[in-house]
Design a protein around this nucleic acid. Structure first.
Lengths: 218, 218
DNA sequence: TGCTGTGAAACCCTTCACAGCC
DNA sequence: GGCTGTGAAGGGTTTCACAGCA
């Protein structure tokens, strides 16, 4: 039983990393993991791992470590992955198609409920064994298939309008891949992932640390 | 002239958002923006905008705001986007192909230096007008084309080995799309972007706020 | 003995509130 | 008058270090 009392944001953001490492360990037949081992596998430090896991109510054994399967179940529960979560992808361009074909998608609690686009020439075509449906039918699709999360993969120019439509249709969370900030009501969490943004952040740190002149020199 | 003295990590992570909003404003002919306007366009609050921008050495005018073009130049400089940054994409699966075709890629300082895969059946094929090259040629490609940043889009199982090869070849920064933690020397910054991770984080917040039973009820 | 769980300290980031300049 | 730049306060996160249990 999770205490479920307020879990810090930073901890929530790391739980999926732990889950990933734990599933991997489980597949390799490991039944127990120390905070240090889990830390190395997920790229954080062990003190953080222990603090984070203690927030969920402490599932470790002193002198031994954490039971892998038990912890997988616990984290899945906290993240809400034990129920099925139907997801729609809106915007079937290059990225939308890639996401639709992504195998790891349907694992761990999520299922693909629909692929949606506004372009009539795309509607009715097949992508990864699924038929692309019309943006006009968004509301009924969301309602009938109990969709709560949407992946927004439209061009930047369309993103805000589509986000508005998603909220109207009853979507509760948005994963935004469009390179633009979208404004939605406060109750709807949005996470934006953008290639350019990430590259620019890396560029900053690369020019600090790196500063190499090319491996030919020397 | 930027003071360039230690810029906080949180600030660095937001500079690309400001840049995005500023470029958008510039395209619409706006020449000046207050911290409040910039804040709304990038989805943060105005105090944060002012603190962040003051780290770069203050380019605003009291009573007026920030000059859009000047600030674009300043942020670009700080992020290291004024030099060309050749990037390689390793792993030309669904996602790699989508990233390769992404138009916004070459804008703002980055250029696509090579597409690389280990699969012989993919090598030599064309993707987005480019020929896929062999992982065996990684070192020479990186050296000759002065590549400093790599995008890792391989399956999870191959990611660590490819990351090792990238570091050996002289890469200084990695953007990792494989759903696994990769270990590299401390001097090489890595940012990992994973669809499952993001969905799981959203899932947590959705089940807190949302809690809807379906829009049909009522 | 070994490793978790956790107070306390240190650090970083955000927010407030207003002095200072245009 | 309006808006930036910034000390100071507040809140959250990380790290330390060790008590406590298997």
């Amino acid at each position: 039983m999770p205490p479920s009392g307020r879990i810090p944001e930073a901890t929530v953001a790391r739980l999926p990393l732990y889950l990933q490492a734990l599933v991997q360990a489980s597949e390799q037949g490991t039944s127990t993991l120390s905070s240090e081992a889990l830390a190395q596998a997920s790229g954080v430090n062990s003190a953080k791992v222990r603090k984070d896991l203690s927030q969920l109510g402490s599932y470790g054994t002193r002198g031994v470590g954490y039971r892998v399967d038990e912890l997988i179940g616990e984290i899945s529960e906290v993240l809400g992955l034990t129920r099925d979560r139907p997801v729609v992808i809106v915007g079937i361009g290059n990225l939308g198609r890639a996401l639709a074909s992504y195998a790891g998608f349907t694992r761990r609690g999520f299922s693909l409920a629909a692929l949606i686009d506004a372009d009539p020439s795309k509607i009715g075509t097949e992508v990864g064994g699924r038929t692309v449906e019309s943006l006009d039918d968004l509301a009924s699709i969301v309602a009938e298939r109990h969709v709560s999360i949407a992946v927004l993969a439209t061009p930047a120019a369309a993103a805000q309008a589509v986000a508005d439509a998603l909220v109207d249709a009853g979507i509760n969370a948005i994963l935004n891949f469009a390179p633009v900030h979208v404004t939605v009501p406060g109750r709807v969490p949005v996470r934006t992932v953008d290639l350019s943004t990430e590259l620019q952040i890396l560029s900053f740190y690369e020019q600090l640390h790196g500063g190499r002149l090319g491996p030919t020199a020397g």
